[in-house]
Structures are given as structure tokens and as C-alpha cells.
């Protein structure tokens, strides 16, 4: 039930974003359509449901967004420096990153965040191992890899998807 409500709220918010009007006709059509789509898709859409709206989780989600945006800007600064530099200072390789996260949603978010952080690109996920293309391999020690690539994302995601 809580999964159903969560899916419905998300779809309805997306509908309001699309139409950007509070005209009664639009709102009623949105409620009906979101209800129908929710009936088909709530089982695959989310595993947690309304638990996402607990205040503690909302705090961590906001913290995650801030960390993510800072990492995105840093990543672009990094890429820009490498692209403009006439010598192209790169030393690429593929390394293994072992995650401690259990849920699939959390792994997908971790992989996406890693792709958008400085110098890393997720190539594949096999069980709890992420294969990551790193544009500047500084070390092959698993602990250093863990700390360099995704430790702060992983700590926050652990709290969100508990």
C-alpha cells in the first residue's frame, strides 16, 4: 500500500510538472492517469514506498544531492583541464571496486554517481563488484580505490536505502 501511494505521488508530481497548470480539468485527468499507470507499475517502480519520506531520510537525500552536485562540478573542472591541456595527461585503466551496499536500487544510484564523479566511468556491475574505467589510475590497492572513488557516496546511500 505504501509503495502504491509513493508511486502515485511521484507520477502525479511529474504530471503537474508537464502541464504546469492547476486548472481542474488538467488535475482530474492527471489523477486518473497516474492512478491507472500506478496500478500497472507500482510493483517494479519502488521497493521502499513511503519510507522515503521519513525526515531523517529526507535529510540524507538533500545531503546526497549537495555532495553529488559538488562532485559533478569538480568532475567537469577535471575533464576541462585534461581536455584543454595540449599534452592530454591521462593514464587510463580498469579497476575493481567492491561495494558493501545490498539493494539493487542503491547499486544503480552508486554506479550513476560514480560515472558522474571525477575521472571514473562504470563499465559493468557483477554482484557486488563494480568494474570502473579510471582515467588516471593512481593506485591498485583496493582500500585506496574504495576511498578515492566512492566512499562518501556509499556512506550516504547506506543511510538512505537502509
Amino acid at each position: 500500500m505504501s509503495r502504491f501511494l509513493f508511486t502515485f505521488i511521484v507520477f502525479f508530481l511529474v504530471w503537474l510538472g508537464f502541464t504546469t497548470s492547476f486548472d481542474p480539468q488538467e488535475v482530474i485527468a492527471g489523477v486518473i492517469l497516474s492512478f491507472i499507470i500506478t496500478l500497472f507499475s507500482y510493483k517494479t517502480f519502488t521497493d521502499y514506498g513511503l519510507k522515503y519520506f521519513y525526515p531523517k531520510r529526507i535529510f540524507y537525500i538533500i545531503k546526497y544531492l549537495i555532495v553529488f552536485l559538488i562532485a559533478l562540478v569538480k568532475a567537469n573542472w577535471d575533464v576541462a583541464k585534461r581536455v584543454i591541456n595540449p599534452k592530454l595527461p591521462i593514464n587510463p585503466g580498469i579497476v575493481t571496486y567492491t561495494t558493501k551496499l545490498k539493494s539493487d536500487t542503491a547499486k544503480v544510484f552508486l554506479a550513476n554517481s560514480i560515472t558522474l564523479t571525477p575521472g571514473t566511468l562504470t563499465v559493468d556491475i557483477v554482484d557486488d563488484k563494480l568494474y570502473i574505467h579510471w582515467i588516471d589510475v593512481v593506485s591498485r590497492d583496493p582500500q585506496v580505490i574504495f576511498n578515492e572513488i566512492g566512499a562518501n557516496f556509499e556512506n550516504i546511500l547506506k543511510e538512505i536505502f537502509k
Binding site: L72, V79, A80, R82, V83, I90, P92, L116, T120, L121
Partner: peptide
């Protein structure tokens, strides 16, 4: 950053580094 992303695709030596530059810079 859109321009830098396109420049990255143009200059990088192989597929994976092109993806790196392309994805990050064009997303931002």
C-alpha cells in the same frame, strides 16, 4: 561545458576516454 565535451570527444584517443569526457561535460 557543452563545447568542452564536444572538444573532448574530438581529441581523446579511445572509446572509453571519449565516453568519460563526453558524458560528464555534456551532462553538466
Amino acid at each position: 561545458f557543452l563545447f568542452l565535451g564536444a572538444l573532448g570527444i574530438f581529441r581523446m584517443p579511445d572509446i572509453f576516454t571519449r565516453l568519460q569526457a563526453g558524458t560528464k561535460a555534456t551532462t553538466l
